[in-house]
Design a protein around this nucleic acid. Sequence first.
DNA 1: CCGTTTGGTCAACACGCGTTGAGCAATGAG
DNA 2: CTCATTGCTCAACGCGTGTTGACCAAACGG
Lengths: 192, 192
Amino acid sequence: MTGSHPSRAERRQATEARILDAARRLFAEHGFDRTTIRAVATSAGVDPALVMQYFGSKRGLFARALEVVVEPPSGDGAEELIDQLLGGLGTKLGDLPDGTLATMRSMLTDPAAAEHARGTLGGQIGALSDALAGADDPGLRAALAITTIVGATIGYQILGLTELRGAPPERVAELLRPALRALTEPESERQR
Amino acid sequence: MTGSHPSRAERRQATEARILDAARRLFAEHGFDRTTIRAVATSAGVDPALVMQYFGSKRGLFARALEVVVEPPSGDGAEELIDQLLGGLGTKLGDLPDGTLATMRSMLTDPAAAEHARGTLGGQIGALSDALAGADDPGLRAALAITTIVGATIGYQILGLTELRGAPPERVAELLRPALRALTEPESERQR
DNA sequence: CCGTTTGGTCAACACGCGTTGAGCAATGAG
DNA sequence: CTCATTGCTCAACGCGTGTTGACCAAACGG
């Protein structure tokens, strides 16, 4: 067991995890540029040189910090996908994983983070687009649905808009649902 | 006139404008941290020291670069405001003023830019919220409408999502309109 | 018990940054 | 014409950064 007498390998893995945790937290809070390796090291109770030794470079550390599983949504109907997106929004307005927040914070200024974000969002858009295959402009509709979620997340998590922070996540999801539905429904069905 | 024999004052104002232009462009492209005073100076064909002399500090230059008139929308009905937002979106997807883009690029990492963005968006949200006074949660609805626009703008301008870049702005506005309408309409009116 | 591996630290380098003060050359006023 | 003003440049400082190589001590294998 990993308890009282940690072996060398266990210790090593533990400190590596501590560094990664600190990195995710700081990257999420300050973005790539404003986060220094020294700060990460200090926060992990470790020497800056060790961070380099384990992750090679600041970029390497950042790349590892972004490694967060973002499952592309899987569901048959468009309505089901919307539900999943809105459900995800619940957690996005609650305790968003630091890796994701770090990506959002840095994607506007760091090319690597932007690439990562494009990849992740691209997956989501692709899945949703497939589900909208029947409508016109499925790709565009899917993209707008995703950017709507992204916008709300940024407004809440990063800009801290008081109107959003004061509202319970379920209420936000409730208000957003008709909008997403309107976005994903061809006009002919709007009057039902 | 300002033509063949520029006076001293005219020359001075001209170079100041050149610096400010370069600053806006570079801040918009790379954000606050990645934009160096040296780069701005070079791009304006000027010595870095001159930038300091005119604007005091990098932050001072940034503050001046953000000074872009963003008129809070004025209109009586909610529908009218939505039209205005979507019209603005047209330009947002086309040639967004560099100052605004600089704000968006930097707002996720720079506190001053975030403050600026909160102020600007707050004005928009307030105006829209007033127009929605009849509905429930007017503030929240207004905030979500604005973040929807922001999300689309980020997706287009900064992330460069191919689905958005390939579409004509009018089409985007056309698809977004029902969504915004759904966001600003109380549920009772949805079935009309 | 000895030698080697290895998790970890220390001090330092090189570089780019924002910022500064002295200086230059052209313009303006008298 | 003269001299003060001023738009502008030059060279440099101080600092914080990412990154490196020498070093130490504890854990391991024989």
